[in-house]
């Protein structure tokens, strides 16, 4: 089968999707701009039995479509056929090497479920355990600087929401807002090689952001970081920062937490 009109630039693929102990395999040609997620959707709509996978937004925002694609954690909705047919690392942070091709010249695309998460079916995982360390009430909105622009106009009464009722203390910043960069995809957790109890890079990044955003919670956040499963087990492998699709750099946040702990320690002495 092919994706839409088969053009000269179509790329031959052998797609292998983990299904329990086995792989389900599909051969197809796809256009370079198609994503791995597009391909699974195409196969499914053509009546193929495709192992279960998660997806929602198709643009790198919901964080559901993570998988280990040819050895490296990535979002299926942002990984294009073109990139799979070009040199890529086979390990987080590894050197880019020529893509694997099978005997018939097709580029091999193997999809495995994220690690450290319970598999529901196929490559669909339940990310609960990986995200459990993110404080439930950690702020998701951040402020955007005006950057030389005028502040946003005040809301007219008919568009105003009574803040005392709906704004849990300090939760929503005033002025321009945007969502945090972290999409809670868990790629960093899957890639992290630490094998002892560890709250994980996504949670530590959230804890550090929360510490920076809400001074009143700084001590509580430092306590989470200082716990035995906090920053301690991190071995500075930096796999988290390498696979993060949103440039959150969890490794940097972990370092900032260490610094904050050291400073609090000095101040307390």
């Amino acid at each position: 089968m092919s994706s839409g009109s088969k053009s000269a630039s179509s790329v031959p693929l052998l797609v292998r999707v983990r299904n329990g102990d086995a792989f389900a395999e599909y051969r197809l040609d796809a256009e370079p701009q198609r994503t791995v997620l597009d391909i699974l959707e195409m196969l499914r709509s053509c009546g193929e039995a495709v192992p279960a996978y998660r997806h929602s937004c198709h643009h790198g925002s919901c964080g559901t479509c993570g998988a280990i694609i040819n050895g490296v954690e990535a979002l299926m909705c942002l990984t294009t056929v073109a990139s799979l047919a070009s040199p890529r690392p086979r390990l987080p942070g590894g050197p880019a090497v020529e893509p694997e091709r099978d005997g018939r010249g097709a580029f091999v695309v193997s999809l495995e479920p994220l690690a450290k998460m319970a598999v529901i079916s196929g490559i669909a995982v339940s990310p609960g355990a990986a995200l459990a360390g993110i404080p439930l009430d950690a702020a998701y909105l951040g402020s955007v600087p005006d950057d030389g622009r005028s502040p946003l106009p005040p809301e007219p009464p008919a568009a105003r929401v009574e803040s005392a009722v709906w704004r849990p203390a300090g939760r929503r910043p005033a002025g321009r807002v945007r969502f945090e960069a972290c999409i809670e995809c868990g790629l960093c957790v899957s890639a992290c090689p630490v094998a002892v109890p560890f709250i994980g890079p996504a949670a530590l990044a959230a804890i550090n952001r929360e510490r920076e955003k809400r001074p009143e919670r700084a001590a509580a956040m430092r306590a989470l970081a200082a716990a035995p499963d906090g920053v301690g087990p991190c071995g500075r492998h930096l796999a988290c920062s390498r696979v993060c699709p949103q440039a959150v750099y969890p490794g940097k946040h972990i370092q900032l937490l260490r610094t904050a702990l050291a400073q609090a320690d000095t101040a307390g002495r």
Binding site: R34, E41, S61, F179, E180, Q246
Partner: peptide, 26 residues
């Protein structure tokens, strides 16, 4: 529509028979 670190332009409209496997129109 701005959202998180992105700016999103939309959209278009056509009709199809099968709601599964919808791909963007290049």
């Amino acid at each position: 529509v701005p959202q998180r670190g992105l700016s999103i332009i939309g959209t278009t409209q056509r009709v199809v028979d099968n709601p599964d496997g919808i791909l963007p129109d290049d």
